[in-house]
Design a protein around this nucleic acid. Structure first.
Length: 191
DNA sequence: TGCCCGATTAACT
DNA sequence: GTTAATCGGGCAA
């Protein structure tokens, strides 16, 4: 059986946690898969929601590590983050793409597409596939409905600039599973 | 209060 | 490659 990750896993630098998450398996009510793409955000980072200090929306980011921060993107989509570092650091990892392994039929129904590569390849898409909404904001990652398992083998992690930003565009804080077909976009170094 | 804009996606040309 | 959809946060007034 794969080893479960607990909240303690997240209580260190977001730049260590983010690449370590590649290959881990996330399930929500039994539906999900392998994390293949994430991005790191920190309070000192102009692109982070926490950059301008605590607000009602980003309050969870200022809390302890190992909890879920969910926000509405463009008024349409939900985006899923894992809070990292000691309380107050306001850092988090954005989950950008998952390789679907569990609940494929459910995900196809929720997404309205059949192509496996379109189920969870993007932050908004994976939230729709796993049915993650504001109701999950503030929940612990090691408690239901979530299940999080450590990767079972070594993986090759690739890094590059984050996607969709207008600030701090040069920071190479996007991490991905090298060669994965399920990335939201290819990394430049393997294009 | 009003205005601008975004850690996106799908459907266009 | 371009653009609409859609709405709350953040800031100016």
């Amino acid at each position: 059986m794969p080893k479960r990750l607990t909240r303690n896993f997240f209580n260190r630098s977001v730049h260590e946690v983010a690449p370590d998450l590649i290959g881990a398996t996330l399930l929500c009510d039994g539906v999900g898969g392998r994390l293949v793409e994430v991005e790191a955000y920190h309070q000192t980072d102009p692109a982070a929601h926490s950059y301008r200090g605590p607000t009602e929306r980003n309050a969870v980011m200022f809390g302890p590590a190992g909890y879920v921060y969910v926000y509405r993107s463009y008024g349409i989509h939900w985006c899923l983050n894992f809070v990292c570092e000691p309380k107050g650091s306001a850092s988090a990892v954005l989950i950008r793409a998952i390789e679907p392994t569990a609940g494929l039929k459910t995900m196809r129904r929720r997404r309205g597409v059949t192509d496996e590569r379109l189920l969870c390849s993007g932050p908004g898409r994976l939230c729709q596939a796993l049915r993650i909404t504001a109701l999950h904001n503030g929940l612990a990652l090691d408690r239901p409905p979530f299940e999080l398992f450590a990767r079972q083998s070594e993986v090759e992690v690739i890094a590059g600039p984050r996607i969709g930003l207008t600030k701090a565009v040069d920071k190479p804080w996007r991490y991905g599973l090298k060669g994965s077909r399920f990335l939201s976009k290819p990394f430049k170094s393997e294009a």
